[in-house]
Amino acid sequence: MRIADGMLTLQVMDNLSLTRRDVARLQAQLATGRQFMRPSEAPRAAARTLVLQNRLDHVERYQGSVEQSGGQLEVVEATLATLTELLQGARELAVGGGGGTLTAEDRARLAAEIEQLGQALFELGNTAWIGRYLYAGHRTQAPPLERTWAAGAWTYAYVGDHGEIRREVGPGQTVTLNLHGDAVFLPALATLESLRQALLANDEAAISAAGASLHADLEQALWHRSMVGVRSAHLEMTGEQLADMGYSYVKALSREQDTDIALAAANLAARESAYQASLAVSARLLQASLLDYLR
């Protein structure tokens, strides 16, 4: 076979550029920590990587939602805790107020205290958190409870709606964050008002009836609290599941796209020495000529 000079130089340049391409790719893998810079370098791995990135992104979003929801549920739980305390206080007052030794003046004083409690309860129902009324359903921009004074008695009204504040914490998985003011506060407020009226009227039978109804209200408040507690616990579990899922996605993603540093470094060293060798051989090959040996 004849070897023309042009063939030799072309071959040398082909080989050098092939080796250099390998060296450049390994260098990029090591520098970026990624096995591929473009989808076409590993299309199947790239498609899997992108799907995993999508899932991971969703999981991170859901994790954020879980955290934010947890914050709001905590505030709701705290107001419910206050509600229970207030109602317990009111019940003690009712029990005390039902005692046969009390005079009408004592009861009037108790009535004033109950009015204070009613005021506190009313304000609790209008709790706002980050610019939002918690017990107003979807009408979060206005206080949900209103009261009017007429003929010596308070009447309470709920002006919120029954909208549910829901967060998505998983595909098709939602958690409800709010309770409605009319269910949580209105009965208790009405009971307190009737207790106040009974105390003012010095009517022992009515006082004990109001006390019994306060008991029911307290039960109701505790039930609400436990419901929120269950939601919190559920949310926490979801959060843990999401964390596990996120971790597994990160792991899978790393397997698909991250450079195996040790392997890449070893390959790079091997390719580099191949490159050196081919440079040395080419230099000697291209230099040699018959003319060097003719006088």
Partner: peptide, 14 residues
């Protein structure tokens, strides 16, 4: 949709 479209594009280029 875009993950698969990019995968298909990668395959074509490859």
């Amino acid at each position: 949709f875009w993950a698969s479209a990019i995968g298909a594009l990668g395959l074509e280029v490859e």
